[in-house]
Computed example of a mutant assay.
Amino acid sequence: MYETLEIELNNGVATVWMNRPDVHNAFNAQLIADITAACRQLDADDSVRVVVLGGRGKSFSAGADLNWMKAAANASVEENLADGRRLAGMLRTLAEMNKPTIARVHGAALGGGMGLASACDICVAAEKAVFATSEVKFGIIPSAISPYVLRAIGERQAYRYFQTAERISAERAGELGLAHEVVASEELDARVAEIVAALLQGGPRAQAAAKDLIRAVANRPVSDEVVEDTARRISSLRATPEAKEGLDAFLSKRLASWVPKA
């Protein structure tokens, strides 16, 4: 269905493979359009519980395609603005999916690739993976990816890496909070599968609400407004069929209806 992606569906898990291995899954207009459309399609599919994003070949994603960047250098301001909006829109669509998302990172995750890893809810990296916000080396800035990278590594670290464009090892990415887990390359898929299995235990509506809760509360002072909002959120969920099913399953010592059967 997609020119630059392969999508595998297996027991509620959609694995989205960026499939431009000859250019290390670098971004171009088609890949941006395909990821945007795939995220929207999968988010609307109730049979999909978890989305895993990975890359075919040697890399997760090496950032922007050089030919695409060359074309952008010769394009008008209006054309570049349209391109920038499409890239920013793709990252936001990924970041705001209702479903849990996992970045499966191996090899290079540079520029926009680091943005994709940051926009996913969870990042699992192979020990030889490497990250960078490399844009300043090309005379540009990591603009579209900045909200998600800042969310992952914080403002203080961004001051360093946005300006130095240093390569960030997988170990360092773990220290920064960019990668939740760093594992041996041969253990990458197994660790992703373990996290997927944990995610499948949770209620789909509750997980979507949990993501929305984080966006509502993060970086805000504990005000009367915030306290009232959190009270309303939990009260509205307690009476839902999903919450009733979850409590009944716990008390009955059985699996909830949303948990895949072995």
Rank of each mutant, 00 (worst) to 15 (best):
M1W: 03
M1D: 10
Y2L: 07
E3L: 07
L5V: 07
E6T: 13
E6N: 10
N10F: 15
G12I: 09
G12V: 10
V13P: 15
N19F: 06
P21G: 08
D22Q: 11
H24N: 11
H24G: 04
A26E: 13
N28I: 02
I32C: 11
T36P: 10
A38S: 11
A44T: 08
D46V: 12
S47Y: 01
V51M: 14
V51D: 11
V52Q: 03
V52E: 02
V52L: 05
L53C: 04
G54C: 09
G54D: 08
R56S: 12
G57V: 07
G57D: 05
F60E: 13
F60Y: 15
A62P: 00
L66I: 15
W68C: 09
M69R: 12
M69N: 05
K70I: 08
A72I: 04
A73K: 14
N74F: 10
V77Y: 13
A82H: 14
D83S: 09
G84H: 09
G84C: 08
R85Q: 15
R86Y: 01
M90E: 09
L91H: 08
R92F: 05
T93F: 07
T93S: 10
E96A: 12
K99V: 10
T101K: 09
R104V: 00
A109F: 07
A109S: 15
G111M: 07
G113N: 07
M114K: 06
M114Q: 12
G115E: 06
L116E: 02
S118D: 04
I122D: 05
C123T: 15
K128Q: 15
A129R: 14
T133L: 14
T133I: 08
S134D: 13
V136S: 15
V136G: 04
G139Q: 02
S146I: 01
S146C: 06
R151V: 00
A152L: 01
G154P: 04
G154H: 03
R156Y: 06
Q157V: 03
A158V: 06
Y159G: 02
A170D: 09
E171F: 11
E171V: 09
R172Q: 15
G174K: 13
L176I: 03
E181W: 14
E181H: 12
V183Y: 05
E187L: 07
L188Y: 03
D189C: 03
D189S: 14
V192F: 13
I195E: 07
A197V: 10
L200P: 08
G202L: 15
G203C: 02
G203I: 02
R205K: 10
A206C: 02
Q207H: 06
A210H: 01
K211H: 04
I214S: 02
R215W: 03
R215K: 06
A216V: 00
N219D: 10
R220K: 14
R220P: 00
V227C: 00
E228Q: 05
T230P: 00
T230A: 00
T230K: 00
A231S: 07
A231M: 04
S235Q: 11
S236L: 09
L237M: 12
G246H: 06
L247T: 11
A249V: 04
F250S: 12
A256I: 01
W258I: 02
W258G: 01
V259L: 02
V259R: 12
K261W: 05
A262C: 05
